[in-house]
Simulated scan of single mutants.
Amino acid sequence: VGRSSVQAYAYFMFPDNVNLTEEAEARLTALDEHTELGSGMRIAMRDLEIRGAGSLLGAEQSGNMSAVGFDLFAQMLEQAVAATREGDAGAADGLPPALSDITVNLPGHTYLPEEYVPDTDERVLWYRKIASAATMEDVEAIEQDMLAKRPEMPAAARNLFAKARVKAFANEHHMSTVTVAGGKLIVEPVAVPRDKMVPIRRAGGRYLAEKRKLTLPTRYFKVEEGDALFGAVLDFLKELSGGEGE
């Protein structure tokens, strides 16, 4: 415990045989990177990036806003500000388009590193733009804008745009879920052509036509352990859709 000139310390311990989740690793990295006095705000902003925003005006950091994440938060905030400026109080009560109803949960670090975009307000602005990108073209335009201003894009930022592409593609093709759980990719609702089912079945995949739900082991993508799946999954979804969205 810190007292006056005595520095405080914290030790985090976990079993060697238990793998940390990506979110836990990101939180520990944030604490490790911000150890100097007065770093509380930076840690809080990094936590916001990791798990999504909590209550906008109150002290509560859980509930509906945390559940839907940063996407809906950014869209609702933008809509509320616009409605207030235009003097339309009723417009602020409506919900934005349902991009936030799409769940994309694929392994890989997806954030804007502080060393890449040092200014907190600028990072939040970029997150808002990316979260609001409803089409593949929107994502491409935002990425090119960022590259023009900050050419040396790190892997985590590239992954963030790759994830945004998957989400935009899902939005354009009316998919609600593109997620990896237990070593399997789950996509729904999705139509799988018969000619695509042979390699899917060989890889141990299953398709429930009545639910339009596809479950496919991630080994199907033949990527190295630790590699992000965003690009491979997007290419796969394009194949299922007959190459649409390229």
Rank of each mutant, 00 (worst) to 15 (best):
V233H: 01
A157R: 00
N171H: 14
G94V: 14
L37Q: 11
V139C: 09
L28C: 13
G231N: 02
G204V: 11
E49Y: 05
K222I: 14
F236W: 06
T135P: 00
R206E: 14
R206Y: 14
D227L: 07
A59Y: 10
G204H: 14
G242L: 06
K163G: 00
G69H: 04
T84G: 13
L216G: 02
T179H: 09
L214H: 09
A10K: 14
G226A: 11
A131V: 04
D93A: 05
S4P: 02
P199A: 15
Q7G: 09
H34N: 15
V139M: 08
R42K: 15
E224A: 15
I186K: 05
R219K: 14
R128D: 01
P199C: 12
G226T: 11
L147P: 01
E152H: 13
K213N: 04
R123G: 02
D88S: 07
D71H: 10
A30Q: 07
N19P: 02
A91W: 06
I186C: 06
K149N: 08
F73L: 01
A98N: 03
A155E: 13
P96G: 04
L20D: 02
R219E: 10
R3E: 12
K196H: 15
Y111C: 07
L99W: 01
G204E: 09
R128K: 12
M136E: 13
A67Q: 09
K184I: 04
R206V: 10
A209P: 01
L31H: 08
F169K: 02
R165A: 03
A80C: 00
Q61Y: 02
P113E: 06
S5L: 15
A232S: 12
M146F: 10
G54P: 00
E224N: 12
